[in-house]
Every structure is written in structure tokens, then in C-alpha cells.
């Protein structure tokens, strides 16, 4: 038990970093209503770009910007495959993700991983200093939520939300739904790469496999956030905060079950089952329980 408690700060720090990634997933999965599997590759791209740029002597802040842009480009590729080539969104994401595996290996100098020592470089976050990592992570979260809250309140942001909510209505109101999907995918993958850049610093290396199953963790955070905070967090900014909290809860639970003796190799199996169950519960509920209709009658 003591071991679990002492592991909590680390779990929180990791949860925050993955929560940032989950915000990216939220934009495609909830706002645009697209399941984007690019992110499994993009997370690794963000980490790889950051590590190689930093090793190459670039300022860490600039390296994070470059990682963000690299993620945006990955999203652009998926967006063009989907809207320009007419490939279903899921498949478009899988194609980009597959391509990114090779690209990430290339970025890492044809190696499967590269280390980034906190002793040698001036990193923003590291697991050597977890309280600092938590604070920095939260600053990123707050800034990101503030920017997204502003953006999705603009004319452009409104049009992206309308595209995800009702594409026929969006087109009838003169919105080019294809470009809006591309913009959403670009932003989403940029954020995921940013999370990858933070993660690489935190763990002190970038690995070509670091993004494997990222979409599942992102979805877990989104869904846990909604299930736990959905009733109280209605506002868009608070919902994003709920997603980050979902990420933290996910990592706390993972830490707990590992302490209970779950084999670390079974972790991905465990995650997949948890997410499958969380996705299934609302569906089963709607099947088994009669829906409570809340329609007000006011003449019309």
C-alpha cells in the first residue's frame, strides 16, 4: 500500500502527459466524430523529433514546436487521404500510422530508440523531478485548454464543431466540411505529438514503439473523464479538463493493478478490456433500460 502511495505522483505526472494526448483524441473522436488511428504513430513522431532535435543542439522549446508541427503534418496526411482520396477515416489513419513507423525509424537515425539524458540536456520535464513534471504538465494543460476553448468559440471553431455534429447542416450553411475535417485532424495530431515530445523528455528516451496503443489510452481517458465528470462538467473547457483527469485516473488505476501483481506484459490486454467495457456500458444501458424522455411540451 505504501508502495502504491509513493508511486502516485509518478502516475499523476504520466497521466497528465497522456491526458494532453487524450485532448487531441477528444478533438477527433468527440468534436469531429472521427476515429483517428494516426495518433499511435504521431505520438512516436513527436517523441522522435524532439529527441533528435535536442541531441542535434536545438533549444528544447524550439524542438517542441518542431515536434508539434511534425504532428500537424501527420494529421494533414490523414486528412488528405480521407477527404481527397476518399479513404474511410479509420483506414486513412491506419495507413498514415503504418507509414509513420518507417518514418519514425528514419527520424531516430535508423534505430529503434534514442536516449535523451536529463544530465546532458536542459529538459522541461523529467521523472527525476516528478513534482516539477506535474507542475509543468498542468501549465501545459491549462494553456492548451485556454487556447482550444478560445478556438472552438471562433467562427472557424464553430464551423468545425458543426461539421462533426451534423455535416449536412454544415454544408447547407456553406461550410466546406472536408477542409474542416482536415483542420481538426491537423490540430489533433499536433497536440498528440506535443504530448509525445513531453513523454520522451519525461522518460528520457524516444522509442519507435512508444505510441503503440496510444489511441486506446486516449479513448480510455476520454471515456473515464466523461463517465466520472460528465454530470458536473458541461462546459467545453471543463470537459477537456475532465479528459485530462480521466488520463490521471487511468494511470493511477494502472499503477494500482500493477502493484496488485498484474504482469506488465498483460497491461495492453487489460487496457483494451477496460476500454471495451467502458464503450459497451452506455450501449447496453440504452438497450436494456427504457430511455427517459425529457421533451418539454410547449405547443410546438
Amino acid at each position: 500500500m505504501l508502495g502504491f502511495i509513493s508511486a502516485l505522483p509518478g502516475a499523476a505526472a504520466q497521466g497528465i502527459i497522456w491526458g494532453i494526448m487524450a485532448i487531441g483524441v477528444y478533438i477527433t473522436y468527440r468534436v469531429l466524430d472521427l476515429a483517428d488511428l494516426t495518433v499511435d504513430g504521431t505520438l512516436g513522431t513527436g517523441g522522435a523529433v524532439l529527441v533528435m532535435c535536442t541531441i542535434g543542439g536545438m533549444d528544447i522549446r524550439l524542438a517542441m514546436v518542431v515536434a508539434f508541427i511534425a504532428g500537424c503534418l501527420a494529421g494533414l496526411v490523414t486528412g488528405v487521404l480521407h477527404t481527397g482520396f476518399g479513404i474511410p477515416a479509420i483506414l486513412a489513419g491506419i495507413l498514415t500510422q503504418l507509414a509513420l513507423y518507417s518514418i519514425n525509424l528514419r527520424i531516430l537515425g535508423d534505430k529503434a530508440n534514442q536516449t535523451l539524458s536529463v544530465m546532458k540536456y536542459d529538459l522541461i520535464v523529467s521523472l527525476r523531478n516528478i513534482p516539477n513534471a506535474i507542475v509543468i504538465g498542468l501549465i501545459f494543460v491549462i494553456m492548451l485548454i485556454a487556447i482550444l476553448y478560445w478556438f472552438f468559440g471562433t467562427e472557424m471553431g464553430h464551423s468545425i464543431r458543426a461539421t462533426g455534429n451534423n455535416a449536412a447542416m454544415a454544408r447547407a450553411n456553406g461550410i466546406n466540411t472536408n477542409t474542416r475535417k482536415v483542420i481538426g485532424l491537423v490540430i489533433s495530431n499536433g497536440i498528440v505529438a506535443l504530448s509525445g515530445a513531453l513523454l520522451a523528455q519525461y522518460q528520457g528516451f524516444a522509442d519507435v514503439n512508444m505510441g503503440k496503443g496510444a489511441i486506446v489510452i486516449g479513448l480510455a481517458a476520454v471515456i473515464i473523464g466523461e463517465v466520472v465528470f460528465g454530470k458536473i462538467f458541461k462546459n467545453f473547457a471543463l470537459r477537456l479538463l475532465g479528459v485530462v483527469c480521466g488520463g490521471i485516473i487511468y494511470y493511477v488505476v494502472i499503477t494500482f493493478v500493477l502493484r496488485l501483481g498484474l504482469n506488465a506484459n498483460d497491461l495492453k490486454l487489460f487496457s483494451a478490456i477496460v476500454v471495451a467495457l467502458f464503450l459497451a456500458v452506455p450501449y447496453w444501458k440504452s438497450k436494456l433500460l427504457p430511455k427517459q424522455v425529457k421533451v418539454q411540451k410547449k405547443g410546438v
Partner: peptide, 8 residues
């Protein structure tokens, strides 16, 4: 109309 980054 053009949709910009002005408030919605």
C-alpha cells in the same frame, strides 16, 4: 462568408 478567428 469567410469564417475567421473572430468570436463566433
Amino acid at each position: 462568408k469567410m469564417r475567421t478567428l473572430k468570436f463566433g
